[in-house]
Design a binder for these strands. Structure first.
Length: 273
DNA sequence: ATAAATGTTAAGAA
DNA sequence: CTTCTTAACATTTA
């Protein structure tokens, strides 16, 4: 459930509740539920993986983490809602999620230019942020919510494969052209994800995530827990180019010559057996 | 049945 | 003061 496109789907499915006055509030969220009673839903918004219920006066921020779920105009029979909002237009039930109140205006708290699904997405800003962190690994960069809000582990794995970039590549060792390509690919894949998820065909479009073989060269995919984010990376060690630069390595006590990008099997030959 | 996973945050350690 | 590591949270699927 939790990557950005899934939150956009929720926002769209719940759109008919915007403008509704909340007449019944319940749930086991550790917030003051009484404050929501009688308020009006001004708008339903999203930023990355955050689902935002904007009320008159304050907002509710919902994050589904790994296991969260929701029902609109219906309920789960097996689980107690973390938060349930009811009114004349329908009801919204949220389960196993993190719920917090935001007192400040949302436009003051969120930078919409960073949301990979926003119409205000700013690719140039993302490129600048990537250029500013030369030691950052590609696998960590894609998951950085301050750069790509809404990108999750599936998007990470699929994007890196699409542009044939090794997850351990260092941003500073890549040509600027390649960083720009990465920014473009995250945005593009987010919309593919959205369309596929709406059509219930997301999974069958996975090229590497939770897959066994490289669809391109057929060798077994590598699976490793990589980066400071310690998330699973599925990748093809043959097709995905690694850019490494010794000047960003951990303990170089002497000045070392800058090494050129390490390119592995650029042409990705077929595996012979 | 046991493990791992589309994720983040808080607290403690280094 | 960072930066890193670990635990906690809580549900489904393999």
């Amino acid at each position: 459930m939790p990557e950005g496109p899934s939150i956009v789907i929720l926002r769209e499915e719940a759109a008919h509740l915007a403008g509704m006055r909340i007449t019944h509030v319940s749930g086991n969220a550790r917030i003051d539920l009484g404050r929501l009673q009688g308020r009006t839903i001004v708008a339903l918004r999203s930023w990355g993986k955050h689902f935002l219920i904007e009320l008159d006066g304050f907002s509710v921020r919902v994050h589904f983490l790994l296991f969260g779920s929701y029902r609109i105009d219906e309920r789960r029979d097996n689980m107690k809602p973390r938060l349930s909002l009811r009114g004349a237009a329908g009801e919204l039930n949220l389960y196993a999620c993190s719920v917090r109140l935001i007192e400040e205006p949302l436009d003051q708290v969120y930078d919409w230019r960073v949301d990979i699904l926003s119409e205000r997405w700013d690719a140039a800003l993302a490129r600048r942020k990537l250029a500013a962190q030369p030691a950052l690994l590609a696998c960590d960069a894609v998951l950085d919510q301050d750069i790509f809000a809404g990108a999750g582990n599936i998007i990470k794995n699929e994007v890196l494969f699409r542009i044939r970039l090794h997850p351990l590549s260092q941003l500073g060792a890549m040509p600027a052209r390649r960083r720009a390509e990465l920014v473009r690919a995250v945005r593009d894949y987010a919309f593919d994800f959205l369309a596929w998820k709406k059509a219930y065909v997301l999974r069958k479009h996975w090229q590497v995530h939770a897959q066994r073989r490289c669809p391109r060269c057929q060798i077994p995919l590598s699976l490793a827990v990589l980066g400071r984010t310690r998330r699973r990376s599925f990748f093809c060690a043959q097709c995905q180019v690694l850019y490494a630069d010794s000047s960003h390595d951990a303990p170089p006590d002497a000045a070392q010559p800058r090494s050129a990008a390490v390119r592995r099997n650029r042409s990705a030959p077929r595996q012979s057996s």
